[in-house]
Amino acid sequence: MRVNSKEIEILQIIEENGRISINTLSKMLDLSEEEVENILKKLQKEKVILSYSAVIDWSKVHDHENVTAVIDVKVTPQRGVGFDDVAERIYRFPEVKALYLMSGAYDLSVVIEGKSMSQVARFVSEKLSTLESVISTTTHFQLKKYKHDGVVFEDGEEDRRIVVTP
């Protein structure tokens, strides 16, 4: 789909702030609110805009922190469809938060969330590894999140040291 410069500007703005108001967008782009609404509807209809989301620091919410794992998966591609069929089977599992076709030593990178490490391990052993196209997996557990979708996770503590130079 071809998009014009105003549509690109809208996409860039809402990618940074999905909660920005139509009114603010229209002022920033020198368009009417109706024009902005029509552009957004068009981009949603064409599936350029897929969803609006918030980045949550779940480590600050008591009893709601999950375990996140990135699983490297080596698969045998299927004749005629390549990796698409096995990827579709994998992304349909509710635990799967993201799935990417990769270059390099592994074919797919799967990001999953679970309540515990054992729940993630069960997913790998009972669901992922049992798929006939899957040759091998390597699981990496996320220990700490520093930055996600361009948002830096900070403790809020500023460095209060005084810079001393000779």
Score class of each variant (00 low, 15 high):
6 K>H: 13
7 E>V: 05
9 E>C: 02
9 E>P: 09
11 L>I: 12
11 L>W: 07
15 E>L: 00
16 E>M: 05
21 S>C: 10
30 D>C: 10
32 S>D: 10
34 E>S: 05
36 V>D: 10
37 E>S: 11
38 N>R: 14
42 K>I: 00
43 L>E: 04
44 Q>S: 09
46 E>T: 13
49 I>Y: 08
49 I>E: 01
51 S>T: 04
52 Y>K: 00
57 D>E: 15
57 D>M: 13
60 K>R: 15
62 H>N: 01
63 D>H: 07
65 E>G: 10
66 N>K: 13
70 V>P: 00
70 V>H: 09
71 I>C: 09
74 K>R: 15
79 R>F: 05
81 V>M: 01
83 F>T: 15
88 E>I: 00
97 K>F: 03
99 L>R: 07
99 L>M: 06
100 Y>V: 07
102 M>Q: 15
104 G>C: 08
107 D>E: 09
107 D>A: 02
107 D>G: 01
109 S>L: 10
111 V>R: 09
117 M>G: 02
118 S>V: 13
119 Q>G: 01
124 V>H: 06
125 S>I: 00
127 K>M: 14
133 S>Y: 05
134 V>K: 03
134 V>E: 07
140 H>W: 04
151 V>R: 11
151 V>F: 14
157 E>F: 12
161 R>S: 15
163 V>M: 05
164 V>T: 12
